[in-house]
Structures are given as C-alpha cells and as structure tokens.
Simulated scan of single mutants.
Amino acid sequence: MASSSSLPPPSPSPLAQISEFAQDSASIDSRPEHPSLASIPELTTKPAVSEDDKVEALHLLADSVAQQRQLASSAVIFHPFTLSMTALLFGLVYQKLYKGSPSDYAIIGTTFTGAFMAVLVTIRWLTSGYIDEAGNVGTWKWLNKGRGERDSGAVGDEDEILLTWFGDEVIGTLILRGQRATPPSSSGSSSPKKSRKNHPVVGIIRGWTVKRRYRHKGVGQGLLEEAVQLCQSQGWNGPEFADDHANSRQVLPRTFHGGFAKRERIAREMLERVRDEVGKPISISGGSRKGKR
C-alpha cells in the first residue's frame, strides 16, 4: 500500500540559481553610469584656431608670469640674509627701547611691527617687475616678437598655440615656434641667406603653463607630449625651451633665484624625459607611452 505521507518539497535547482545570478548580473551591467562620473568634463588638447582662443592662451600665460611675484616674495622673506637682518633689527629695537618697564614691550612691539611692514612694502616694490612683465607677455606684440625681421629664421606665418580644455575651460597652454637655427659663420660663404634657409628647423617653446589649481596632475606633461608630436609631424628637431621664454625674466638679484632655478631645471628634465618616451615605438602589447594627464 502506498504511503500517505507527502514527500518533502524539492530543493532549488542549481540551474535555476545560475539563471537568477545571470539575470542579476545583467541588471547590474544595464544600470546607467554613475551620475558623478558622467558629469566629469572631457580633457582635450587641440590647437587654438579662433582669435578668442589665442587671447585666452595669452591671458593664461600672463597670469603665470604675475604669479611669479608670490614665489619671488617668498624667496626674499625666507632667505637666510633677510631672516638674519630681521633678527638683528629686532635686537636693535629691543636694546634701544627697553628701559626695564613692562610698558616698554608695547612700544617695542609697535615699533617692530612698523619696521616689518616697511620691509614687506619694500619687497612688494622690488617684485613689482613681474606685474609689468605679465602685461608685456599677454599681448600680440610679444606673440609676434621676432617675426617680420630680416632673416629672423621664424618658420610659418604665426606660432603654434596648443590649448588644453577641461570641458569648456582652458586650463593649460603651450606656444611653439619653428625656428631655423643660425648657421655657423663662414667667411667663405657668399650666400648666408641660402645657407640659413637649408638649415634644420628646431621647435622652440616660448610659453608653457597650466592654471594653478590643475598643476601637478599631468596636464603640463600632456602639453609637452603634444608639442613633441607636433614637431615630429612637421619634421622639426626638438622641441626645446627658448632662452627668453615667457617665465624666464628675473627681476631680483641672483642670490634670490634658487626657487626659480629649481623650477627651470624640473621643466627641462621633464621635457627631455617626454622627448625620450614619445620617440620610442609603442609596444606590441599596446602599452601606453604617455604619462598621467
């Protein structure tokens, strides 16, 4: 006789579990991209075409020159010579004004504060040359400097201006000029113009900067990479930094140039490294040769 007790319910099929997992995975993959990631603007580098783009590049470059005033002021304030003179000044003020009364400290503090403010005003005046230089750099006259002169060696009608855009905002620029190198002087040469015409062209970087809040994020390196590729496409040597590039002028005595010399060395080392990396062929595995942008 058949048992009247009912059988236990069947356990879930493993195939059904796999099917449910696949459906869950498909639903996850079909979810829209996270809103915060979709809202990040695109980072692109392209040549400046319109006049407004070129003006934007000149303004950005002029701002970088004006910002050098802050670095120059810090170099003066924290220089060992300035700190020593400040300590000596404080000692002299204390020695002359302190007569043994507690009320003398108020006079000493007021006098020293006034003297220190006078030092800051003097430093501000000494570094004002960077503001004047910024006004000079951000002009068409600076951009076209050297063109139109007899046998100037400049190639093309105008400089190449690269802009890095973060969405609709310009955050970096690089100004590159093709310059035909000056041939070595030769007393036996009867046609100096012809010898210069046949001389190789070198890409000269006349200006290179990134907006302050976007620095140290690879944007400047990306501009250098684009400059190297542009030189390669044009058949130019280089690029190299111009001796008189936009940020090269120093308005303070040489003893305060330590910070500027360090920045110049870092920039030239980065350019040399980028030239080496971009010049190498891309590996078969598809590894990227570009640095972080």
Score class of each variant (00 low, 15 high):
97 L>I: 06
108 I>N: 08
139 T>Q: 04
103 S>I: 01
132 D>E: 14
146 G>S: 07
22 A>T: 03
105 Y>G: 02
135 G>Q: 07
122 T>E: 10
89 L>G: 15
144 N>A: 08
149 E>Y: 04
122 T>V: 05
34 H>Y: 08
96 K>W: 11
26 A>M: 05
78 F>Q: 06
63 D>H: 07
118 A>F: 08
110 T>M: 07
149 E>W: 07
148 G>F: 00
59 H>N: 15
47 P>H: 03
62 A>Y: 00
32 P>A: 11
35 P>V: 04
66 A>D: 09
139 T>G: 08
35 P>K: 05
136 N>D: 13
38 A>M: 06
36 S>L: 12
30 S>Y: 02
107 I>S: 10
129 G>S: 07
112 F>E: 06
27 S>D: 07
149 E>F: 05
126 L>I: 06
52 D>I: 12
37 L>Y: 09
81 F>T: 12
29 D>S: 14
73 S>A: 15
97 L>G: 01
117 M>D: 12
14 P>Y: 11
156 G>F: 05
72 A>S: 12
71 L>P: 00
100 G>N: 09
98 Y>P: 05
52 D>P: 00
151 D>C: 03
31 R>F: 07
118 A>N: 11
51 E>K: 10
26 A>V: 03
93 V>T: 13
114 G>F: 15
103 S>R: 12
86 T>P: 05
83 L>F: 01
19 S>A: 15
80 P>Q: 10
14 P>D: 06
64 S>T: 03
115 A>R: 07
107 I>M: 05
118 A>D: 10
119 V>H: 05
70 Q>W: 09
156 G>V: 04
61 L>S: 07
96 K>N: 13
34 H>R: 10
68 Q>K: 09
54 K>Q: 14
104 D>N: 07
106 A>K: 11
23 Q>T: 11
50 S>I: 02
32 P>F: 01
36 S>K: 09
138 G>K: 01
88 L>I: 09
37 L>C: 06
140 W>V: 08
18 I>F: 12
134 A>I: 01
102 P>E: 05
42 E>W: 06
57 A>E: 03
78 F>W: 12
49 V>S: 09
87 A>R: 11
157 D>S: 13
89 L>D: 11
146 G>I: 03
86 T>W: 01
122 T>N: 12
73 S>I: 11
137 V>K: 01
40 I>L: 15
81 F>Y: 13
111 T>E: 08
38 A>W: 01
40 I>V: 15
51 E>I: 09
139 T>R: 02
71 L>S: 14
141 K>S: 14
134 A>D: 01
58 L>R: 10
45 T>N: 08
115 A>M: 11
127 T>M: 08
31 R>L: 15
15 L>E: 14
